[in-house]
Amino acid sequence: MNGVHDMGGLQSFGPVRPEPNEPPFHAPWEKRALALTLAMGATGSWNIDQSRAARESLPPGKYLTSSYYKIWIEGLTKLMLERGFITPAELASGRMQSPPAKVARILRAADVSIALARGSPTVRETTGAPRFKTGYNIRTSNWNPATHTRLPRYCRDKPGVIEKVHGCHVFADADAQGDPRPEWLYSVRFEARDLWGEHTTASAVYVDLWEPYLQGG
């Protein structure tokens, strides 16, 4: 989806403002927002690409004016409403008015450390071979799906060189549609001048891209 979340190369947002000695959270609700997002994710009711798709399909004005934890809460609410886990009336009242949906599992306190330490690796076994090798020239596709994608706009239809073959990883575009099929994933080096012409202070930009985004150069 060509959305406002895809920010690489925009120049109108002003300076970066680092905060000295920044705390992990800036308000108590941010802690709960993080924990609720992780705990609901652990129920296995959606995958990380569906979470990202929910956040980036928020109305552009809301996305740009919300803090990041607010975006998480908006995305989480959307995922739960879509699946009938909660209803708008329940959301307004904070009280259960319909039976809960069945979820695959519930994260218990005793399992938190193990679940976090395990994470969710995305690398998959495969019998196939990658189409490209390190050093190959490629060109990215002119790729504009209306659904979730991880090919940023700034590096579409651009020449690049394969820096590294990462392995076969769950393909984000398909995963967001509920299809966790793997594709070969590469680190691709783009010369900054090929992306931006003379208006850049970068030398090169490296982007992790799946094989369906790439064509032989």
Binding site: M7, G8, G9, L10, F13, Y68, H199, T201, A202
Partner: peptide
């Protein structure tokens, strides 16, 4: 916060 913010996400790759 700055890492997640629009100013950093937009300009890091160009400037």
């Amino acid at each position: 916060v700055w890492y997640k913010s629009a100013p950093y996400r937009s300009r890091a790759v160009i400037d």
